[in-house]
Design a protein around this nucleic acid. Structure first.
Ligand SMILES: [Mn+2]
Ligand SMILES: [Mn+2]
Ligand SMILES: [Zn+2]
Ligand SMILES: [Zn+2]
Lengths: 141, 141
DNA sequence: CTACTATCTCAGAATAATTCTAATCTCAGA
DNA sequence: TCTGAGATTAGAATTATTCTGAGATAGTAG
């Protein structure tokens, strides 16, 4: 009887990818799934351990690598020297606010009029990065 | 009487941005201008010093920062933990080959049909990153 | 041409992000 | 329950980048 709750959904996703469900790996993935802000390793680590220790730094790194290898998380590269992570692995684009630094998902169908056949390469995927001011920062100065 | 040669062009560009023209800074920018491969700091450094020492590592870093600050070079972020540099500061997109890792420029007008008004943000710029197999890697296996 | 000085360069130290090591532990299948 | 491949950990190692502070120099004013 699957209760269909979030815990079970996450456990089943890990298992279906052949990953062992360990408390640390579960915590990392669950944390990432609960957020929309594309956190860094440091932010995930701090969040996990804020009440009591759950996972070491090295384990957060290796968990993210394992999750990335099986396609449950993606890396997002928008800023110099900053690796961010995203549990949203469906194709989508990103908006990066130059003022507050926030990163927002942009729906895939925002740019659906691409003609990739013009390129002299075999294009397998693409992503658009948009920069500017987010809704909370427009109007500020 | 400008001779219009590459050396003068580069010197004038540096001066027009208010940068002092030092041998090291000249060498870094000239090297970047002569390449199409979006090199890393390490690759630039190795290239500059291959015959005899021209510039220290720290100076390559600071030169690139200075050049970036005045808009003569751009940073290109496509791979985890790798910062690449580009003297092509005109708006353009990038293709990244998953096989050989090469990075190619993609003309700006390849994607000229964007409707950025649909977004709830103030979009100031955008860039498309395409991944796949380059012309030299298609057909190989 | 010479002197001046703000800026630049450099080696080496410091910092920061990530990976490695190797000892110990544990999930999950039999 | 038993067992072993895979996971976890603290701390060391590695790698990328920045800092430091002392000496060098590009460009300018005289
Ligand atoms: Mn996202
Ligand atoms: Mn380019
Ligand atoms: Zn903002
Ligand atoms: Zn290729």
């Amino acid at each position: 009887m699957s209760k269909g709750n979030l815990r079970d959904v996450i456990v089943n996703r890990l298992k279906s990818k052949g990953l062992r469900v360990t408390p640390q790996r579960f915590a990392v993935y669950a944390n990432l799934c609960s957020r929309r802000d594309h956190p860094t390793v440091e932010q995930i680590l701090k969040d996990l351990n804020q009440d009591f220790p759950i996972s070491s730094q090295a384990t957060v790194y290796t968990s993210l690598q394992a999750l990335r290898k099986v396609g449950l998380v993606k890396e997002v590269l928008l800023e110099e020297g900053v690796s961010r992570y995203d549990a949203n692995v469906e194709p989508h684009h990103h908006f990066h606010c130059r003022q507050c630094g926030s990163i927002k998902d942009v729906p895939w169908d925002t740019f659906d009029s691409f003609n990739l056949e013009r390129l002299p390469y075999l294009a397998e995927s693409y992503e658009v990065t948009i920069r500017g001011l987010c809704d909370r920062c427009t109007g500020n100065n």
